[in-house]
């Protein structure tokens, strides 16, 4: 659980909000020749960022307004909150040190984990060392 600062109501508990997914996805200009792939890209495909991520939130139990949040998805730190139609503020954030060597994109992706050789000669993924 974390506290989200609603641009109108101020800091409130996360349970009052609902997340609306990735922000700043604009509907493509109406074209008759749009392919299914292009529509699928707009309708379904979303980035799954680890680190800085812009998402929409709705203060569902309070003022019922939508707004944007810049959140670090790996630490849940909320870096900025801004209203609909506003430009995202320029913020930067880091990723936490991951001693188990997680991949930079996503988490739990075993295929991308760094392979290390243990002292006894057996090969292991780093997170089990």
């Amino acid at each position: 659980m974390f506290v989200i600062e609603c641009p109108w109501c101020g800091p409130r508990d996360q349970s009052e909000f609902s997340c609306g997914g990735e922000a700043h996805i604009s509907r493509p200009a109406e074209r008759s020749d749009m392919s299914d792939e292009e529509w699928a890209e707009f309708v379904f495909m979303r980035t799954n960022a680890k680190g800085l991520f812009a998402e929409r939130w709705n203060h569902a139990a309070g003022c019922r307004r939508w707004f944007n949040v810049l959140r670090n998805t790996s630490t849940d730190e909320i870096l900025a909150v801004y209203r609909m139609g506003e430009t995202p503020p320029d913020v930067s954030t880091g990723l936490p040190a991951t001693p188990c060597g997680e991949a930079e994109i996503g988490s739990g992706n075993d295929a991308a984990k760094v392979m290390v050789e243990a002292a006894d000669g057996t090969t292991n993924t780093r997170d089990t060392v």
Binding site: R12, E16, A61, G62, C63, R64
Partner: peptide, 10 residues
């Protein structure tokens, strides 16, 4: 005035 959750009700 404040809108919030009370128990599970808005």
């Amino acid at each position: 005035v404040a809108g919030s959750l009370f128990g599970r009700a808005t």
